[in-house]
Design a binder for these strands. Structure first.
Length: 575
DNA sequence: GCCGTTTTCGGCCCGACTGTTTTCAGTCG
C-alpha cells in the first residue's frame, strides 16, 4: 500500500472514531499520523522494513503496528471493523455545515438515521429539532445544507478561488476605516485547491465593516455575522464557471494585524508548532499577541518568528514538514520567484491541439518577458490531439527556423511532447528525436496499467538518451481524476540516475508533479522545469501556478532549469 | 493514541460564533 493510501486509511479511522464518540486526542493522533505519513520524504515500505518509522514523531507503538499491517498486507482488520460498525451515510453528514461528529452520532443513536435521505425526511417531519442540543434553527440549517451539498463546501482550484478572493479583498480594502487587509489561509500558502477564503483586515471599528461585508454583491448567503467575524457563501462567474466558496472575514485592531495574519495563514499544524515554541519560551501566542509577563511588540510576521528564534518562513512552506527545524538552524532555502523564470518549454500551437500559431505564442512569451520559448506539440500516435507525423515535424522545424530569423528578442526552441507508448518506447524513432532541441516525454494513454507496469513503462522512457524531461508525471486532474498508479519514488530515482528533468506542469487542473514529490525530487538531485503546457497565448501566464508549487516544494532558483539564461539553456540542450 | 529535563500519568492550541442553553457544548479554522 502506498503512502497516500495509508494516509487515507488513517484519516478514515480518525473520522470513524469521531463518529463513535472516541477521545478527541486519540482522533487527533490518527489525523496527525495521516499527515505525517503523507509528507514523509522516504519510501514508507523501506521505513517499515528497517524499523525507522517507529522513530518518527507522532508514530507510537499502536500506530506503528497498524501502519505496518497496512503497508505489508494492504488492509487492516481494525479499519474494517470500524467501517462495519459505522454506516457510510454518517460520513456524508459530516459535510453539512455546522454539523460535526457529535451531532451526527446523536442523530444516529437517537433516531436510527443512517443516510442523508433519511435525515432530510426526519427534518421535514420535525423530528430532529427535538433532539438534545438541537433546535429549530439547527434543523433548518441541516435542510439548507442538504440542498447546497453539491455546490457549497467543495474544494475549488486555486485559479478559480484566487480571482474570487482578490475581488472580495479589493472591495474590503476600499471599505472606510480599513487599515490593512490580506488574503490568508490556504490561498496565501498557495495550496492547489481551496475549501474557503480567509480574509483578514485591521480597523478601529469592526461593526461597519462586518455590515458592509455581508452585503457585498458576491454574497449568496450569510452564514454568520458576528462582531469581529462574519462568514458568507460567495459566488462569481469566471469564464463560464460558477465559483462558489465560503468566505470568512475577521477584523482585528491594527497592532494585532501581524499576529492575526500569521494565525489565519496557518497551516494549523505550523501554528501549533509556533505556539508550542512560544510556550517553551514562557510566552503565549494567539491571533492577538505574543505575550508573557509583558507582550512582545511585533510589527511584522518576521518579528514574530524572530521572537521565537526562527528565521522568517514563507507562507508556502508553513506546513510543518520540517520548516520549523530548518528555520531554527538558518537552513531555509531562498525560494524561487516568478520573476526568475526566463522561458518555458512545454507548449502547444495550431500544429497540434493549440489555439494559436507558433508566432503568436512566441510573441506572447516575449511580452511576458521571456528570453526563450519552446514548442512541444503532440506526437503522431495522439491523433485526437492532432499529433504531428514525422513529415509535419520537419515542416514545423522549417517554420521555427524562419521565425527565429524574423523575430527579435525571443528564441524559439524545437521541442515535442512525445507520447510514451504502452511498452515504454517513444512515439518517434531515435533519428527524428535527435533532431529536436529537447523532448518532453508524457503519458496520455493506458492509464489503467498496474502500478508496476506503469512504473516500468515510464522509467524505460526515461532511459532513452533523447528524452530531456518527463511531462505531467501522474496525469492527475485535480478534483476530477486521480493520477495513474505509479511508483514516483522509483521514477524520481530513475530520472536522477539518467539525468532527466521532471516537469512541474503548471496547468491549474494538473499541478503535477505535486509539491510533496517536488521536495523529494530535489532531495534526489533531479532538476525541475516549470511548464505552463499552454494551449493559447493567455495560458502562458499560468506558469506562475507552477512557481507556487515549486515554492511549496522548497525549490530555489538554482533548482529550476528554466531560470537559466538563454546561453546556458542552449549549452545544456546541445549536450 | 502520543509523549516525557514537569517522564509511565496527565496533559494534549485556542478563540469566535452559533444555537442551545440559564452557563455551555459543538463546530470551525
Amino acid at each position: 500500500m502506498s503512502k497516500d493510501e495509508v494516509a487515507t486509511a488513517l484519516e478514515e479511522i480518525a473520522i470513524l472514531l469521531a463518529l463513535q464518540g472516541e477521545n478527541a486526542f486519540k482522533i487527533r493522533a490518527y489525523e496527525n499520523a495521516a499527515r505525517t505519513i503523507s509528507s514523509l520524504d522516504r519510501n514508507l515500505a523501506e521505513m517499515v522494513a528497517d524499523g525507522s518509522l517507529g522513530e518518527v514523531r507522532g508514530i507510537g507503538e499502536a500506530l506503528l503496528e497498524k501502519i505496518s499491517t497496512l503497508v505489508t498486507t494492504g488492509s487492516l482488520p481494525y479499519l474494517e471493523e470500524l467501517k462495519a460498525a459505522v454506516p457510510a451515510g454518517l460520513i456524508q453528514m459530516l459535510r453539512l455545515p455546522g454539523i460535526g461528529p457529535k451531532k451526527v452520532k446523536l442523530i444516529h443513536d437517537e433516531l436510527g438515521i443512517t443516510t442523508i435521505v433519511d435525515l432530510k425526511n426526519a427534518c421535514i417531519a420535525d423530528k430532529v429539532a427535538h433532539l438534545k442540543g438541537f433546535g429549530a434553527k439547527t434543523q433548518t440549517k441541516i435542510l439548507e445544507g442538504i440542498a447546497f451539498l453539491d455546490t457549497v463546501g467543495q474544494r475549488v482550484r486555486i485559479d478559480l478561488a484566487w480571482p474570487l478572493g482578490q475581488r472580495l479583498l479589493a472591495q474590503i480594502k476600499a471599505f472606510p476605516g480599513v487599515i490593512r487587509a490580506e488574503l490568508c489561509g490556504s490561498l496565501r500558502r498557495r495550496r492547489e485547491t481551496a475549501k474557503d477564503l480567509d480574509i483578514l483586515c485591521s480597523a478601529d471599528d469592526a461593526g461597519p465593516i462586518m455590515a458592509a461585508f455581508v452585503h457585498l454583491p458576491e454574497v449568496l448567503q450569510v452564514v454568520g455575522h458576528g462582531e469581529t467575524k462574519s462568514s458568507i457563501v460567495a459566488a462569481l462567474m469566471l469564464d463560464g464557471t460558477k465559483v462558489v466558496l465560503n468566505a470568512d472575514l475577521r477584523v482585528v485592531k491594527d497592532p494585532g494585524f501581524p499576529f492575526a495574519l500569521a494565525y489565519f495563514t496557518g497551516s494549523k499544524e505550523h501554528n501549533i508548532r509556533l505556539r508550542q515554541r512560544a510556550i517553551e519560551r514562557g510566552l503565549g501566542l494567539n491571533e492577538y499577541a505574543l505575550s508573557g509577563k509583558q507582550s512582545v511588540a511585533c510589527k511584522t510576521e518576521a518579528d514574530i518568528y524572530k521572537a521565537l528564534d526562527l528565521d522568517y518562513v514563507e507562507p508556502e512552506m508553513r506546513e510543518d514538514t520540517g520548516e520549523v527545524e530548518a528555520a531554527e538552524k538558518h537552513q531555509l532555502p531562498k525560494l524561487i520567484e516568478a520573476a526568475d523564470i526566463r522561458g518555458v518549454f512545454h507548449n502547444h500551437s495550431t500544429w497540434s491541439d493549440g489555439a494559436a500559431s507558433i508566432e503568436e505564442m512566441a510573441n506572447a512569451a516575449k511580452a511576458l518577458g521571456f528570453e526563450y520559448f519552446g514548442i512541444g506539440d503532440h506526437s503522431q500516435s495522439l491523433a485526437f490531439a492532432g499529433g504531428l507525423t514525422p513529415e509535419r515535424v520537419k515542416l514545423q522545424w522549417a517554420e521555427i527556423d524562419a521565425l527565429n530569423q524574423k523575430l527579435k528578442g525571443i528564441r524559439i526552441f524545437k521541442g515535442t511532447e512525445c507520447d510514451i507508448l504502452e511498452d515504454g518506447s517513444l512515439d518517434f524513432d531515435d533519428d527524428l528525436l535527435a533532431g529536436f532541441d529537447y523532448v518532453v516525454a508524457s503519458v496520455h494513454t493506458f492509464f489503467h496499467l498496474p502500478e508496476a507496469k506503469q512504473t516500468e513503462r515510464v522509467c524505460k522512457a526515461l532511459t532513452n538518451p533523447h528524452v530531456t524531461m518527463l511531462g505531467h508525471a501522474t496525469g492527475r486532474l485535480l478534483l476530477r481524476r486521480d493520477g495513474y498508479r505509479i511508483d514516483l519514488e522509483q521514477v524520481i530515482r530513475t530520472a536522477a540516475t539518467h539525468k532527466k528533468m521532471i516537469e512541474i506542469n503548471a496547468q491549474p487542473s494538473r499541478l503535477d508533479l505535486d509539491w510533496h514529490w517536488v521536495k523529494r525530487a530535489k532531495a534526489e538531485g533531479v532538476t525541475i522545469v516549470i511548464n505552463p503546457d499552454a494551449h493559447s497565448p493567455g495560458e502562458l501566464a499560468l506558469f506562475t501556478y507552477g512557481v507556487d508549487v515549486a515554492r511549496r516544494g522548497w525549490l530555489t532558483k538554482a533548482d529550476v532549469f528554466n531560470t537559466r539564461t538563454l546561453n546556458a539553456v542552449i549549452k545544456s540542450l546541445s549536450r
